[in-house]
Write a protein that binds this DNA or RNA. Sequence first.
DNA 1: CGGAATCCCATGGGATACTG
DNA 2: CAGTATCCCATGGGATTCCG
Lengths: 120, 120
Amino acid sequence: MVSRPECGVERTMQVIGGKWTTLILRDLLGGTRRFSDLKRTLGRVSPKTLTERLRQLEAQGLVTRTVYAEVPPRVEYALTEQGQSLGEIIAAMARWGSRWTPPAGAEVPEAASAPLSGAR
Amino acid sequence: MVSRPECGVERTMQVIGGKWTTLILRDLLGGTRRFSDLKRTLGRVSPKTLTERLRQLEAQGLVTRTVYAEVPPRVEYALTEQGQSLGEIIAAMARWGSRWTPPAGAEVPEAASAPLSGAR
DNA sequence: CGGAATCCCATGGGATACTG
DNA sequence: CAGTATCCCATGGGATTCCG
C-alpha cells in the first residue's frame, strides 16, 4: 500500500508498524539485549515473531546483531545510531500513553493474564 | 495482548496501532475533515475500515463526529483536545520518516503498479 | 454523502517441537 | 541459548452492493 511514500508518517509506519516493533525498540533503547532478554521482557512473543521483527530491523539498519561463538551461544542486539534516533518517537509515545486515560468503556478488551515483573 | 498496560508505549499502541490510524490523525491534524475528504486523501481505504477506525477514535475521546442534518448529508470529523495532543507523536514520526532512508534492499516491497484486487 | 451489510482473503502472529 | 521449521488461526482489512 502506501499511498504517499513521500510522507514521513507513512515511511515511519513501515518501520515501526509491526505489533511488537515499538516494544522491541523500547527495550533496546535501554541498552544491548540478548534474544532471551527480549523474549522475556516482551511477554508472550513467539520466537518466530521475535526473530522476524529483529531481522527486519537489522535489514533496515536500525539494529545490529552480534553473535558470540560460545557455548552456549550468545547473541546480542543493539540499536545503531539510526535506531537510536527512533528514541524521540518512542519517548513521545511513552509520554503520551502514560498521561492518557481511556474513557470508561473504551479500553481495549484485555486478556488480563500477564504475570509480569515490573521491569519498567 | 499487552503485557504491560502500565507502559505508555503499549497504551499508545492501542490507540494508533491500526494500519490507517496514524494517517487519519495526520490528516485531522490539518483541521476538520469530512468522511469523503479522508477517504480521498488516504488513498485506498475501504469505507468499512475508515468507519471502524474513526469510530474507535471517537470512542476513545480523540475525535469528534458532527453530523449535519442536510441533504446530502455532511459529517465532519475533528480532533478533540486529547486528540490534538497526539500531534507530538505524529510530528516525531513525520520528522523521522522524512529523514530516514532505507538501506538499499530494505524498502518495503511495493506493489508498484498492479491495479489488482487486494492491493496491499 | 456517509455509511451499513456482506463476503472473502492475506498476513501477521501464536504454539509447539526440534536442532546446531 | 538462539533460533528453525511447521502448522494453524484470528483479525484486520479489501471489494462490493445497497440504503436513508
